[in-house]
């Protein structure tokens, strides 16, 4: 880009900002609920300031150059925060691409040499496209962070421990039992055995989609740890197809008490605690 063009753009900064803001406000999908117009203006000004400050005759076609790092940094910050706040990709892309229109108008008004105008438009277009790509990459990265955080949260909340009876706790496991999950399950279980002074823990795996050798190893470890605490562990919810698969795989669960249903595990636990459930007979009063 010609030094004179850059200088002209710098002198028209206010106009570019006004045009850009107008473009953004015109968008019917603008999320005023997520960000006030004032904040939007602050973000826009910061970006334009840095961009016009960075641009010079030598670097305008070299977006990969170090010069543009501050611009990318601001842009990354903006799109990360937008991703976290729940903006859609379209809204975030519109933010940066509507800047193109604003700069195009100013170039068109101020450059009369058509071949020069043509060349400058092309360069600005390429530049903003690169900025758009960075915006998109960081936006996705922001979304991935949100997903990872939610994964952690799901791991935490999906391992509730239920006190089913004095001395008996139950832990329904839902979802895939990977190494990180197992760690959480095991810790929660051991702490709860102590807190509730329980001697029997029932681990229900009805909600676990597949039991492969890694999951089996995790289950065996959890049972061993429970026994070290002086408690017994029953594994329930082993569906018929899972039982068959475990056998073919060659996993030996014979040292573990396993039951098909939570109900039969509970019955077993009552027996172990020498408890009996009986039906109350209502004698008819005369």
């Amino acid at each position: 880009m010609k030094a004179s063009t850059i200088k002209m753009l710098q002198s028209k900064k206010e106009q570019i900002i006004e045009l850009w803001m107008e473009n953004q406000m015109e968008d019917p999908t603008l999320r005023e609920d997520l960000m006030s117009n004032e904040d939007l203006r602050v973000q826009s000004i910061e970006l334009i300031d840095t961009l016009l400050h960075t641009l010079n005759e030598g670097n305008s076609t070299q977006v990969e150059s170090q010069d543009f790092e501050p611009v990318f940094e601001i842009l990354a910050g903006i799109s990360l925060s937008r991703a976290r706040q729940g903006y859609t990709p379209r809204e975030t892309a519109t933010f940066i691409f509507s800047l193109k229109d604003a700069i195009f108008s100013v170039l068109g008004e101020n450059i009369s040499d058509l071949s020069l105008l043509n060349q400058e438009l092309l360069e600005v277009s390429k530049l903003i496209d690169s900025l758009g790509i960075v915006t998109f990459e960081t936006f996705i990265q922001g979304r991935e962070e949100v997903i990872l955080r939610q994964t952690d949260e799901i791991a935490e909340i999906s391992t509730p421990i239920i006190r089913v009876w004095d001395g008996i706790i139950a832990l329904p496991i839902i979802g895939t039992l990977d190494s990180a999950r197992t760690q959480i399950v095991m810790e929660n279980l051991l702490v709860e055995i102590v807190n509730s002074e329980s001697s029997i823990a029932i681990l229900d795996i009805s909600g676990v989609p597949a039991v492969d050798s890694l999951v089996a190893q995790h289950l065996i470890k959890t049972v061993s740890a429970t026994r070290l605490m002086g408690a017994e562990c029953i594994i329930s919810g082993i569906r018929p197809e899972i039982a068959q698969t475990i056998v073919h795989l060659g996993i030996d669960l014979s040292s573990i008490i396993t039951k098909a249903t939570l109900a039969s595990a509970l019955r077993q636990a009552f027996t172990m605690l020498q408890l009996e459930v009986t039906k109350v007979r209502k004698d008819k009063k005369v």
Binding site: P209, A210, D212, P240, E241, I242, Q244, T245, H248, L249
Partner: peptide, 9 residues
Amino acid sequence: LVNQTKLIT
């Protein structure tokens, strides 16, 4: 279901 479970495991 049984073959599916074997395949997936």
